[in-house]
Structures are given as structure tokens and as C-alpha cells.
């Protein structure tokens, strides 16, 4: 990322914007010959092995939760069994999993929207205002991105208790929006910095105000960048455990908090936690498949150019 290291951008490289970004690059011709085929075979085999290794915890969990409860966690582990969905049924019937799941989704979606709503204008302003304020804000953003969660979340616990919003979704959303802000600004600012300022000036000569420039010119151009930042923010909010652990109790825990509280319990409850993990994981696997294309496009277009 040029912003971080001060490395110079390679000259003459066109800035890909909007739709161009999503177009595949022209493919290089494949080298012919049998050596190349053998190499491709080896690379393919290696990648297959890596994929299998990376997925093995998920695959094993999928087996554990579809086993009958009596053999789910016995040692030595059982590899053949009659599949059973009891863990899922129990999860649904004996816990409030539905409300934990909806808490998680609501918190993630709402906090992402607010973080973008605040972050996009701020990042735009920072990219167009080269002065000591920008420097201070960006360095602060970097440090706050790295801040240990407890340093802000424990005081928030205290504050949310005195405000009477402890254990509500509002408290968690507010905390996540704030914690998310520095990274979003930092990421988005790099996308904005790639858009030439002459564009702003031309639009303003045509009578646009700054706010109009932002919404009518920049935001449409920034499609992939905003999407990339949005995906990162959503993932962050969706995954966050510590903030939700400290700021919620019985009324609005998220799925990660629920799963963690099941850990020290009995084996049937542990298997329920596994079932909950799978229910949480399956949609995000679909999400990963959709998101990867935008992430690679968005990231290579803006934020992390070397």
C-alpha cells in the first residue's frame, strides 16, 4: 500500500475505475509442452491439498454435528455413522438461536450502513484536504485500528450501564460503528486518492457543490471501492466477539457469544454449539464465493498498490 510505505506508484499505470476493474485481464498465452502440463498438474494437486487442509476444521465439524449425540465426541473418533440432525433440532427447540442469529445479522448490517454513511464523506474530505489535519487524522486512524479492544470497550461497558443502553443492540452497533470507522476511512481514502482531482474541479465549474460532487460523481465511480470497504466492515461486525461479549448479557447476545458460552458445558450443548457454527458458516461460505471477485478487483484497484 503506497500510503503506508511511501513507495512511489509505478508510473504510466492507468487507474482502473468502476467497470474496468471487474473486467478480467487479458490472459497470457499458456506455455505448451509436456513439462508445462506436468507442472500445472503438480500445482493443481498442491492447491487441492491446501484447500483440503484449510477446509478440514469445517468438514470435521460438519461430521461431528451430524453424528448421533452419543458418539459425536467419543475417542477414538468414529468415521462411519448414521447421520442425524438431532443437534440442529435441539438447537432450534431448546435455545433462542433464532434471536441470536437475527441479532448478529441486524447488528452487522446496521453498523455497516452507518459506518459507510459516516466514513465515505470523511474519507473523501481527507483525500482532498492535504494539511496537517489529514496527517493527524490518518495517523490516529492507524493507531485506533490497532487499539486493544478492551481500552475502549470496558469504558463503553461502564458508560452504556449509566446510559441504560447496556445489553441492547444499539450499544453494540454504536460501538462497532466507532471501532470500524478508522479502518473504513483509511481504506476508502486510498480509493478516493486514486481519482484525479481535476474531476472534482470540472464538476464544480459546472456548478456542483462539494456534497453534489461526492454523491453524483465520486460515489458512482467508487462502486468497487465502497463495496470492498463494505464487505470488510460487514465481516468485521459479523465476526466480532469481544465487543458483543462485554456489551451484552441475556437480551442481545450475538451468535459468536452464544457459541462461546456453550463451550464449557455438557457434550449435547457442545454439539449444539457445533450445529450453530455450521448454520452460521454455510451462508458466509456462499458470501466468500461472491465476495472474492469484488475483493480482488477492489483491492487491486485502490488500496493496496505497491
Amino acid at each position: 500500500m503506497s500510503t503506508l510505505t511511501g513507495a512511489t506508484e509505478s508510473a504510466g499505470e492507468a487507474v482502473p475505475l468502476a467497470d474496468d476493474v471487474l473486467q478480467p485481464r487479458p490472459r497470457r498465452r499458456r506455455a505448451g509442452g509436456e513439462g508445462a502440463a506436468g507442472r500445472r498438474f503438480m500445482v493443481g494437486g498442491l492447491l487441492l491439498l491446501v484447500c483440503w487442509a484449510m477446509l478440514s476444521p469445517v468438514l470435521w465439524t460438519a461430521m461431528v454435528v451430524t453424528k448421533p449425540t452419543s458418539i459425536a465426541f467419543i475417542n477414538p473418533p468414529q468415521f462411519t455413522y448414521h447421520p442425524s440432525l438431532d443437534a440442529f433440532v435441539n438447537l432450534w427447540q431448546t435455545t433462542d438461536f433464532y434471536s441470536y442469529l437475527s441479532n448478529t445479522v441486524v447488528v452487522a448490517v446496521v453498523s455497516t450502513l452507518f459506518a459507510l454513511l459516516l466514513g465515505v464523506p470523511a474519507a473523501y474530505a481527507l483525500s482532498r484536504f492535504p494539511s496537517w489535519i489529514s496527517v493527524v487524522l490518518l495517523v490516529a486512524a492507524l493507531v485506533f485500528r490497532a487499539l486493544p479492544r478492551f481500552a475502549v470497550v470496558l469504558p463503553m461497558y461502564d458508560i452504556s450501564r449509566s446510559l441504560g443502553i447496556y445489553d441492547t443492540k444499539i450499544a453494540v452497533v454504536a460501538a462497532l460503528v466507532a471501532i470500524n470507522q478508522p479502518f473504513s476511512i483509511w481504506l476508502l481514502r486510498n480509493f478516493f486518492a486514486e481519482i484525479p482531482q481535476q474531476l472534482d474541479e470540472a464538476a464544480m465549474l459546472d456548478g456542483c457543490s462539494r456534497v453534489q460532487v461526492l454523491w453524483r460523481v465520486m460515489v458512482p465511480l467508487m462502486g468497487p471501492g465502497i463495496l470492498t470497504a463494505g464487505i470488510f466492515m460487514f465481516l468485521f461486525a459479523f465476526q466480532e466477539y469481544l465487543t458483543a461479549l462485554i456489551l451484552t448479557d441475556v437480551h442481545s447476545p450475538t451468535v459468536p457469544v452464544f457459541i462461546a458460552t456453550q463451550l464449557g458445558q455438557t457434550l449435547p450443548l457442545l454439539q449444539q454449539a457445533g450445529a450453530a457454527s455450521m448454520l452460521l458458516t454455510l451462508p458466509v461460505i456462499a458470501f466468500a464465493f461472491i465476495a472474492q471477485r469484488y475483493l480482488v478487483a477492489g483491492l487491486s484497484a485502490g488500496s493496496v498498490k505497491g
Binding site: P57, V64, P76, A273, T281, F289
Partner: peptide, 28 residues
């Protein structure tokens, strides 16, 4: 890419729970 991204999109605490079931003999 999609397959390889799976461990990244799973919440860390959930992923670590899954991981613990590979190594914890108490849980097979």
C-alpha cells in the same frame, strides 16, 4: 479463492472452536 477464503469469513472464535475439535482428545 472462494474456498480458501472460508477460514477468513468464519468468526475467529467459531473457527477456533472447530479447530479445537481436531486436537482435543476429550472431544474425539
Amino acid at each position: 479463492l472462494g474456498l480458501l477464503l472460508v477460514p477468513y469469513v468464519i468468526p475467529q472464535i467459531v473457527g477456533a472452536t472447530m479447530f479445537s475439535w481436531l486436537f482435543n482428545p476429550n472431544y474425539g
